[in-house]
Amino acid sequence: MRFKNTLKIIENTKIWFTISLIIIVVGFGALITKGLNYGIDFRGGTILVIEMEKDFNKPDVDKIVKKYASDAITNKANRTQIEIKSNNITDDEAKKIFSELKGKYKLKDKDLVSQNRIGASVGKELKQKAVTSLVLATLAMLLYVAIRFEFKFGLAAILGLVHDIMITIGVYAIFQIPLNSSFIAAILTIVGYSINDTIVIFDRIRENKKKFRKINDEELANISITQTMSRSINTVLTTLITITSVYILVPSVRDFTFPLLIGIVCGCYSSIFISSPIWVIFKNKSLKKARA
């Protein structure tokens, strides 16, 4: 049975795997040579939140902050508040920063909204909890997909998730983007989003398997991917437009939205070009064993 206008996704599996492998290898190389740039949430440090009472010129504030803490990162928490993060700043330096900002912008003592110090032990505990959360979420999804479909579907979906996480972490390693607690929340969101996209394709494969009993698994996967392709792309595009808008207009949540932008694109790619071909590979191996 032949189907017109069916995309040849499975036939080009080597191309998709090669593209992903190159990106992952480059990211892994950066991870070995550079490591991850852990932010204050993991390494420990000080966070200052200051109410400026009116809109302010961020470059002017940066100049003052850099005089006392060269490693400090300043972000606009909102239009009138600034957040200063530093791994090495002392209480005395923090006091001097606020004092100079106070004089320049005629602030009051109450405008120092908060000054919090995060210990390195807290960061270590956060890493452990983050890994535990990710492992538990992955196992729960594997169990869910295995029960709803079959174990091969579940394993293929999880390998797709691993692909998404590795690429996202690789991008952070390559460009040395500070990694904070928001990144963990973003990764868990990516995992949930990606598995949803994968399930849509797998659900269509299951439906088509009942309709077209005489076609092989490669053609079955191609038909199912073709039928769901427009939905996957449209969903990703609308999501990306929303998240990009938030990333541009709300600087305070960029630590969360940036990894989402990477992960959602990876999730769409892996659902179509990684998880589905992996499922076909598993099915073909099972078929060969059965024939043997």
Rank of each mutant, 00 (worst) to 15 (best):
R2T: 14
T6I: 14
L7V: 07
L7C: 11
I9N: 06
I10T: 06
N12F: 13
I15T: 07
I15E: 04
F17N: 07
F17L: 09
T18E: 12
T18P: 02
L21K: 00
V25D: 04
V26C: 11
G27R: 03
I32P: 01
I32D: 03
G35E: 08
D41S: 04
G44W: 03
G45F: 01
I47G: 08
I50L: 03
M52I: 07
D55Q: 14
N57F: 15
D62H: 02
I64F: 10
A72W: 02
N75S: 13
E83Q: 11
N87H: 13
N88K: 14
T90H: 09
E93I: 10
F98I: 03
S99A: 14
L101W: 09
Y105K: 02
L112V: 05
S114V: 05
S114Q: 12
S121T: 13
E125T: 08
E125C: 13
L136S: 13
R148H: 08
F151W: 10
A156R: 03
M166K: 02
M166G: 01
F175E: 10
S181R: 03
S182P: 04
I184K: 03
I184V: 12
A185K: 06
A185Q: 03
V200P: 09
D203A: 01
I205L: 09
R206V: 14
N208V: 07
F212G: 08
I215E: 13
D217K: 14
S224W: 02
M229L: 14
R231S: 10
T235D: 15
T242L: 02
S245L: 10
P251N: 12
D255A: 10
F256I: 02
L261T: 03
L261H: 08
C268T: 08
S286W: 08
K288R: 15
A290C: 11
